[in-house]
Design a protein around this nucleic acid. Structure first.
Lengths: 233, 233
DNA sequence: GTCTATAGCCTGATAGAC
DNA sequence: GTCTATCAGGCTATAGAC
């Protein structure tokens, strides 16, 4: 659960799409503070409702008409806030990446260093993602083939990789892991562990939270065995 | 990639749905061999096209009207073969489980025993699933919240767990792994590894096959480290 | 088993009044 | 920024002729 739509892939295959990309929010005159705040509240509300719909109907089952219905407005009003349904996906992607990054950072800061901090961060991330499953699918699976996040929305994902790489470097410096763990490969390996635990939990235990069930409790143990994969000198 | 919509969950939450489940294929008079064969060919063709559509539009984006269009018939004709779109999902689920089980078995039989056989089987499974990504999503993710496979379609999944449990027991008997590896827990742990590698590959490397890229090549190494998690006496 | 026709929805998106 | 009205299509599913 480290990468989201890998940068390398994106720049290889979607650069053309990015170049053609239209504005995601309708242009408008500058707004007073009060009006701007109200507008932002509505945008937030739309995104929250969109997540509800995606949870019930599948990420791919999002419908702006249904969002409008639940918001209590007519469908055309939604288009004052988002230029298209893809713009809604993109805003959700961006908001999700940003919030997820905060959760990861906060989890890593709860004590410990190096490997311990990384494990705590990923557990916090996992807990949050299981509480936001539609978002987790949008961020880390590929359920909407015709959607590609904009570069801006994708940026936090690269920061996420950097943070984890840093934590692994810390674990090496602390003698918890061998020098080979200060590598992109180790980041990818850790991403397999967290993604596997989360995907299995999401598919097989839709009612359970992080730490419950048969999969997520195994994650910290797997992280502990990183020392077997990258044994300290 | 071991469990598909876990039995325990299913029986807990979907038993009611199962009880109300209607027939999935329309009833009809007994058919001659020729006619029955032709009918089966059409069914197979419908399922193949359905997978194409799901690959392009997302698993959730399946539309029987689009399938009919590509098959060169009118939409109502599809309903002579499947009672509803959910029946198509269910048939795909069943066919996918059965084929996947064959692939796993064949892969495990390519030589070696115990841990080696299990690794080879899961690699064959992974290769096949990356070649059939829409199916992989239907079987092992939960992209269509309103779809639950019928018990018949789900049955092969339990056999899959049994096979892997057996291989782990073999690895214990051969002294490759400690006795604790002869457990459901070990099966779940292995499922985290294969699911993680596959999910990351599917989300981040949509153009690559098994063994290419940054994730799936790590899988055999991770399997090798099972001996660190379950050290042989 | 195929078709036409249709019911009864749904969707994304736009034009233009207020 | 809200609305009504509308375009132009989509969908699942059924009825009934052939």
């Amino acid at each position: 659960m480290i990468l989201a739509y890998d940068v390398k892939h994106m720049t290889c295959y979607y650069s053309e799409m990015f170049n053609e990309q239209e504005e995601l929010t309708p242009a408008g005159p500058p707004l007073g503070d009060r009006r701007a705040r109200r507008r932002q509240e509505t945008i937030t509300e739309i995104l929250d409702i969109a997540l509800d719909v995606m949870t019930e109907e599948g990420v791919n089952g999002l419908s702006l008409a249904e969002v409008a219905r639940r918001l209590g407005v007519q469908p055309p009003s939604i288009y004052k806030y988002f230029a298209s349904i893809m713009a809604v996906y993109d805003a959700l992607f961006l908001r999700g990446q940003v919030e997820h990054l905060e959760v990861l950072r906060a989890g890593m800061a709860t004590g410990g260093a190096g490997l311990e901090a990384l494990t705590k961060g990923l557990e916090a991330s996992g807990r949050w993602l299981l509480e936001n499953r539609a978002l987790a699918q949008l961020l880390f699976w590929r359920p909407v083939p015709n959607f590609a996040p904009s570069p801006e929305a994708f940026a936090p994902s690269q920061e996420m990789v950097r943070i984890q790489r840093e934590a692994l470097a810390g674990a090496v410096a602390a003698g918890q892991l061998g020098p080979a763990a200060d590598s992109d490969e180790a980041v990818f390996l850790v991403s397999i562990l967290i993604t596997g635990a989360l995907t299995q939990a999401m598919a097989n235990e839709p009612e359970l939270s992080w730490g419950e069930g048969r999969f997520t409790p195994l994650f910290p143990r797997l992280m502990g065995h990183l020392a077997d994969i990258y044994p300290p000198g």
